[in-house]
Amino acid sequence: MTSFSRSLKFACLSAALILGACTHKQEAVNTAPPPAPPAPMASAPAPITSSILPGSAEDFRVNVGDTVHFGYNEYNVEDTDKGILGRQAAWLAKYPAVRVSVEGHADERGTREYNLALGARRANAVKEYLVSQGVSTGRVETVSYGKERPVCTESNEGCWAQNRRGVTVISGGANS
């Protein structure tokens, strides 16, 4: 709008040189909608734009992705998950003060202690992949929760697949 009225003014000025009068035209320009008044500072509830703070744990979780999944009794990083882990590594390169903890989880089809060991394998596999992508090993802790922290509680393949996971959690150094 602004550039349009400016070009109108320009057109009027140019025309004035030829026609000797441009008052009318000027008025026409003035009828264009005035610029919006500045938003009142305190009275109206200004919408809070919920932008995620770059470098925050929320930024990592939402914009990068914190979870990868594993096959049954498997702990190798799937090819389909290498993208998300690559993004995690890139994000960690951008925020070098951040430290993370990788949580390894298992589905319910294993005994308690076996699943603690399996969760440790999965957490370590994620850590090793991040390290291979340039994250220094000292920034990545691992912790296994075995089958103790399911995200889905039905006894079916859909739930089991969701529960076999590695979750990278910011443990320190992030913007808050």
Binding site: Y75, E113, L116, A117, A120, R121, R122, A123, N124, A125, E128, T142, S144
Partner: peptide, 9 residues
């Protein structure tokens, strides 16, 4: 007891 080291128990 079991000790886990680099993912191995």
């Amino acid at each position: 007891l079991t000790l886990e080291t680099a993912g191995n128990s």
